[in-house]
């Protein structure tokens, strides 16, 4: 019996060694094909990872069309590249891997720039700013972080809110969910005292759920939302930075905000709370 287990382990080890050897050889070869923009133009299509369940940034309307603030930008980018956009719907924690595995050329799924993520993907210049906010019942609002000590807070896996609480608020118990749908359902079912997520989502959510309030509007440092490309994809990164600069100049983001976001936010929120004006 012992002998057999040993044999199985040896076989597994052999497989792992083989796989990791392949990994090394392939990663060195992938950096050599560098003109990715030309490649996309030649293919005539850019694959972009977007959310499908995040109104008003990336969602699907009743005619089955993908719409939202991120989607407007995605279509504009495809248009300026002169190619078609192919959208791949992702979950929050699938965004990095989708780029790494080459499933998409770019992520435009409300991707917040963080130091950890910078290690694994390349971010272009930001097109939105956010920070972590906390929503709770209006009847029993959480307005200070101290109120959450030893209480449960709902977050979605892989989000900035999860990272912030894990690192900086260790006394708070986290309840982690896979999707936005699940996290908001959990809050409505009173599974926890509060829910933490990027404040930009929360502004929109409380407009439609008036019994809840964004008690804490900003928590921790403010962060930025950027398009992301695969690590080392210099050509597409440079192109995207130029594109963002150009769109900023011609007022695209202001228009995008008024068209896609303004109808969903409370009236006290202005375009300059979200978009980056320079």
């Amino acid at each position: 019996m012992k002998k057999r287990i040993f044999g199985i382990l040896t076989a597994l080890a052999a497989i792992l060694v083989f796989a990791s050897a392949c990994g090394k050889s392939s990663s060195s070869s992938s950096t050599s094909d560098n003109d990715t923009v030309a490649k996309i133009k030649k293919a005539g299509v850019i694959k972009i990872a977007v959310f499908g369940d995040l109104q008003p940034y990336g969602w699907i309307n009743k005619s089955g069309k993908r719409v939202g603030y991120d989607l407007e930008l995605a279509r504009q980018i495809a248009k300026d590249l002169g190619v078609k956009a192919k959208f791949v719907q992702v979950n929050a924690n699938g965004r990095v891997d989708a780029l790494k595995a080459g499933k998409v050329d770019m992520v435009l799924a409300n991707f917040t720039v963080t130091d950890d993520r910078k290690q694994v993907v390349d971010f272009a210049d930001p097109y939105m700013k956010v920070s972590v906010g906390v929503i709770s019942k209006k009847s029993n609002p959480v307005t200070k972080i101290g109120q959450l000590k030893n209480k449960s807070v709902i977050v979605t896996k892989g989000t900035t809110a999860e990272q912030y609480f894990t690192k900086s608020q260790k006394s708070v118990t986290l309840q982690k969910y896979d999707s936005k749908t699940q996290q908001f359902n959990a809050l409505k079912n009173d599974r926890a005292t509060a829910l933490a997520d990027d404040n930009s989502y929360l502004y929109a959510w409380v407009k439609n759920n008036p019994t809840y309030t964004v008690g804490i509007k900003t928590l921790g440092p403010s962060s930025y939302i950027s398009p992301a490309v695969k690590k080392g994809n210099k050509a597409l990164l440079t192109w995207t930075n130029k594109e963002i600069k150009k769109l900023n100049k011609n007022g695209f983001f202001e228009k995008d905000y008024q068209q896609e976001l303004a109808p969903y936010f409370g009236s006290d929120i202005k375009a300059s709370d979200i978009i980056i004006t320079k």
Partner: peptide, 23 residues
């Protein structure tokens, strides 16, 4: 399939819920 970006019954359902359940 929802986990790997395939639009199966559950994935379509979730996008429908998210697009409408606010109202």
């Amino acid at each position: 399939l929802l986990m790997i970006s395939v639009m199966d019954i559950v994935n379509v359902g979730q996008t429908l819920v998210e697009a409408n359940s606010h109202q």
